[in-house]
Design a protein around this nucleic acid. Sequence first.
DNA 1: CTAAATTCCTATTATTTTTATAGGATTATA
DNA 2: TATAATCCTATAAAAATAATAGGAATTTAG
Lengths: 134, 134
Amino acid sequence: MKISTKGRYALKVMIDLAQHNDGTYISLKEIAERQDISIKYLEAIVGILNKAGFVSSQRGKSGGYRLSRGTDEYTAGSILKISEGSLAPVSCLDGTAGCEKAEECVSLPLWRNLDRVVDDYLESVTLKDILEMK
Amino acid sequence: MKISTKGRYALKVMIDLAQHNDGTYISLKEIAERQDISIKYLEAIVGILNKAGFVSSQRGKSGGYRLSRGTDEYTAGSILKISEGSLAPVSCLDGTAGCEKAEECVSLPLWRNLDRVVDDYLESVTLKDILEMK
DNA sequence: CTAAATTCCTATTATTTTTATAGGATTATA
DNA sequence: TATAATCCTATAAAAATAATAGGAATTTAG
């Protein structure tokens, strides 16, 4: 039940951008040094956040990334879902697919409830909240 | 954040044994057929449950497995933790290790809370509850 | 008694997913 | 116009997951 580095690093990037949220663009070089993650791997992760509109980018010299909304407008859940693809504990709850044996599956209600519990919590926490947590 | 087949199958085995909980020993052959999982893979999974004392085994002809306690004495969490090893969303919350940068880690409180939320839910559900869920 | 059916044990293999790295094209600015 | 950045596609390395294989040990049913 682990969150992969994609999700963890995506959250770190968002937190880092939030901590340097002064309207200027922050380069991956800076983030990579602060968070101790390679620039190349960060490129892949920030690419996802960028495509999803979670960050704005500026190419070229002195370019970089910045948050595109206020820190209270991102939930932990939204960041993790975008970067991980899905947070569902079993793949039959991913997207639209759904298992054929869903009707008769005795375990499914448990997984559904677990999914709900996780989602409820992660959607209740904003990036702003995370910065203030201790 | 997926539960692996180890955890899913372990739960299936426990549910199957609960559904045939008449004091007799149920062979892996039966369970394998009902749950559509290979006997060989089941052996590995039930081995874990057996070592943990979750099931009792009887070797030899007409042997098999049966629950060693009442269905209300197993939580979903205990079954999944034994089979998966850990349910923690990040490895720094596994066992005793702990990350060196824990003090300064801005994400950690979120992961701790998520771990708590998951654990609270899964420990609140018993095998008996699962059989009655819909 | 003994053949059959089962658990138990240790390796090994195959597959998939995760975790990156590489190289260079494109873009904007200082 | 050189430099520093994002962006894009492909590839590789490592780790974890999922499963199989072969046979030893055990118990019972006939």
